[in-house]
Amino acid sequence: MKILLAEDDKNIATIAKLALEQFGSHQVDHASDGQIALEMALSGDYDLILLDEMMPKLNGLSVCHQYKVQSPSPSPIIFLSAKSQEADLDEFRRCSMGFITKPFDPLKICSQIASILDAGRAAA
């Protein structure tokens, strides 16, 4: 899969990228803030977008909303977030396929993504 990883923390981005490439053999592009992520998501042809919630310039939810409005055929979105309050999680559920909570386990991230996508396809 071709994945866009939007994550402002360089370290976490490095780990996630490494895990996705190593264990899932995915091709990963990295965006370091919300603005860049939105531009890349709209111009590139990605199979999946992994969005961090807290990012400078544009937060994950705004990127998600704007992307879905502006893109002719939006790709699935999965949130990466340290937030665990129910209200936030509900918000994620409303506008995306699902979410992976931080701290995530890099060894499991590929299977987590796969199961979220499967559940999303089953629901659709």
Partner: peptide, 21 residues
Amino acid sequence: ASHELRTPLTSIKGSLSLLRA
């Protein structure tokens, strides 16, 4: 606190997992 504490821990934990794997 949840964001600032969890972010570095995510990196540490992730790096360790990858190294151990």
